[in-house]
Design a protein around this nucleic acid. Structure first.
Lengths: 361, 361
DNA sequence: TTGAAAGCGCTAACAG
DNA sequence: CTGTTAGCGCTTTCAA
């Protein structure tokens, strides 16, 4: 039983019923301006007799504030982003903002389109974890236009926007040292993300990508210890579980197989473990493994995984706070871009997936 | 260097520059109505010389369509919802809709407020996984007002809205049979969610909650096999890992300890495994365990977990499709509420965490 | 306090 | 095809 497609109840309707002007009604309902007790109660009464629902869109058109922020992430299925979004969203809701979520599947094109759409909807601010691309005109346009933007987990070199980065430096160094101490000299690294172009090159350490920072740390520590670094053991841009498994297979079965593996996230690690298992290799006897992130199950697999644990929820909350600040008009110019937040530090959690390097061949 | 707070470039500005009427400009920019080639190109040129960005809010106020849908879930951190949202969001984006995500933390109050906010922002439709409460006036108001609504993973008895439910019946029966076959007679069940009030009662099988359907299946199968069901072994409403562990502890160490445990989701299972481990109990020798959902790591823990695997991504996509249908004005009245979608069936994946029941005491 | 009237930026109905 | 003129629902001057 559907009514004839009734129009929305508007302020005009309420005003009429309350016998007050639309302006007063609006003030009463929007709780701004000055309204007498008498009018207020009459209006409120009329409003809910009529079932009035304020139209936030109309209000936004008028005020220029949408009370929504756009959040664009690579893959909400990834627990890292899941937890991040929870932090962002909870903190933002507390301040009266809703979250419009955009899932890009790590596609640059989708991201560009997503940012455009969000901007069209006049969100008051953006949190974006940029898919790594060579150019970021869409983001540059955003800050150029003065729209509040916080970069998340990834940085954009030269962009005047604050970013939330977890400081992994110490933890990575510890991990690498532990690996060295266990006798590992050939260490593989596998990641879904890329740094910029294809592979990784030794020359210019990239610090604006999460992978970049991780690799830099490993490489530097290795160097300092006099170990040598084989660029071919650094596998970036792995697409999907199958591809990860192929990389892992190549790494552990090649001419100069690695004795330890670092997985850049939990998804990579699971695929790697599966491949090792199907190769008949055991952890850590044949190959040691460590991963980034510390999901609840990391200690439950066999063997329990050594991980670099990151304060993901906190990072999300931090992003929300930064954005809130930026939206409130505070000068965010102060932030030192590209610098990991010292308050957000990863820490190494040693478990049993790292053991003595095995002599092979 | 921030410009003096420049106003948005509007259609009027573009029109002026292009030397065309505002109406024609709007048509050209909005690609509706009829526009000549000549005008079109002039307008487009003027538009991007001026850096025009269409204001979707203003458009929405006019058209009554926001091209946004509200998605409200209990906990985006939970991989189940993460994957669900990915499915929903991807499918919706393909149809031109953005997702406004609301994370309720399974709080009824927050949910009510979230629905209100979304409705205020005039989303074109809703996907909601209701936190279990005794009353659902906010949802009833929605359908009463004719707003497209799809219930997700949980149903609301008596509400005339379609719902997306995974059919777990067969899989649960299989699982229970397998447990029975292995000699288990005392089986524990632990869940975060509740059915309605406090615990679970035998009398009225609840099928509108995911937990309800799962328990019903277990109980029925147990009954059919002549086994007896102990309501005290059914633990609902566990809050947080600590609480889960307490329940598990009580279940496996009580007077009449259970020999098998069913965890209602992956979070429960991890907590349970941790507790068993710290109790010095081994799986499946001392206690068998099975869980719902099949995350990538389920086969990697020790022992690999027997699970009821659900097509989560598909469920999300299905919800999006249903909503799309409802939003397109199709009569969704046809749907049989409370009925799990036969196309979405869970399946049992036997691994090694279920073994012969141990004689205890 | 109140109200009239002008906006916010866009779409839609109606002539031509 | 094009322009004029009303809206959409709310906020915001500006006088009273």
């Amino acid at each position: 039983m559907k009514s004839p497609a009734r129009r929305d109840v508007t302020i005009a309707d309420v005003a009429r019923r309350a016998g007050v002007s639309r302006a007063q009604t609006a003030r009463a309902l929007g709780s701004y301006g000055a309204v007498s007790e008498a009018v207020l109660s009459r209006v409120v009464a009329a409003a809910d007799e009529l079932g009035y629902r304020a139209n936030a869109l109309a209000r936004s058109v008028s005020t220029g504030k949408s009370h929504s922020v756009g959040v664009v992430v690579g893959d909400i299925e990834n627990p890292f982003f899941g937890l991040s979004v929870r932090g962002i969203s909870d903190a933002l809701r507390g301040a009266g903002y809703d979250v419009v979520l955009m899932n890009t599947g790590e596609s640059h094109e989708v991201e560009v389109e997503a940012v455009r759409a969000l901007d069209g909807k006049r969100v008051d601010g953006f949190v974006v974890a940029p898919a790594l691309a060579s150019a970021y005109p869409h983001l540059e346009a955003l800050v150029e236009a003065g729209r509040p933007l916080v970069l998340y987990d990834r940085d954009v070199p030269g962009l005047a926007a604050p970013s939330v980065l977890v400081d992994v430096e110490d933890a990575v160094q510890e991990l690498t040292l532990a690996l060295l101490g266990a006798g590992h000299r050939r260490i593989g690294f596998v990641s879904t993300l890329r740094t910029r172009g294809e592979g990784w090159t030794d020359e210019q350490p990239i610090s604006h990508t999460p992978v970049g920072r991780r690799i830099n740390g490993v490489v530097r520590t290795l160097r300092d210890a006099g170990a040598q670094v084989d660029p071919s053991a650094i596998r970036l841009g792995a697409r999907g579980a199958e591809d990860v498994r192929r990389h892992v297979r190549e790494l552990v079965t090649g001419d100069a197989p690695v004795t330890a593996l670092i997985a850049s996230d939990a998804l990579i690690a699971t695929a790697a473990l599966e491949e090792l298992r199907s190769l008949g290799l055991t952890v850590p006897e044949d190959v040691s493994i460590a991963m980034f992130d510390d999901p609840p199950w990391a200690g439950l697999v066999s063997p329990p995984l050594t991980v670099v644990s990151q304060p993901v929820l906190d990072a999300g909350v931090a992003a929300a706070r930064l954005l809130l600040e930026a939206m409130s008009g505070a000068a965010t110019e102060l932030v030192e871009p590209g610098r990991a937040d010292r308050a957000l530090r990863a820490r190494l959690v040693m478990r049993e997936s790292v053991g003595p390097a095995r002599e092979r061949d």
